[in-house]
């Protein structure tokens, strides 16, 4: 695994510079039952294909970002700082 992630601040960098933050998923509302929170905490979609993910640029700008990655080819289709783009 040595693909590149385009960091919005730092440009193309090796995946080793980043911490993986998991799939982007909306948290349940505060009124949601415990079961929803358990699912949110422990279940993953784990798509074989394109998915939106959190990444933290640990060795670079130290900011959180989101990347849209094809988990099969490891191609990163786009990346942006949260808030820059409304999904």
């Amino acid at each position: 695994m040595s693909f590149l992630i385009p960091c919005p601040n730092c440009g193309n960098r090796s995946v080793y510079e980043f911490r993986f933050g998991g799939e982007v998923q909306a948290p349940p509302t505060s009124a949601a039952p415990p079961g929803d929170w358990q699912k949110h905490r422990f279940n993953r979609v784990n798509a074989a294909g394109v998915q939106a993910e959190w990444w933290f640029h640990r060795s670079g700008c130290r900011q959180w970002m989101q990347a849209v990655r094809n988990t099969v080819s490891n191609e990163v289709l786009e990346s942006f700082l949260p808030g820059d783009k409304q999904e």
């Binding site: 730092c10 960098r13 510079e17 060795s59 670079g60 700008c61």
Partner: peptide
Amino acid sequence: CAQASLAHAH
């Protein structure tokens, strides 16, 4: 300027 690891330190 840029940021990266140098000798394993940020």
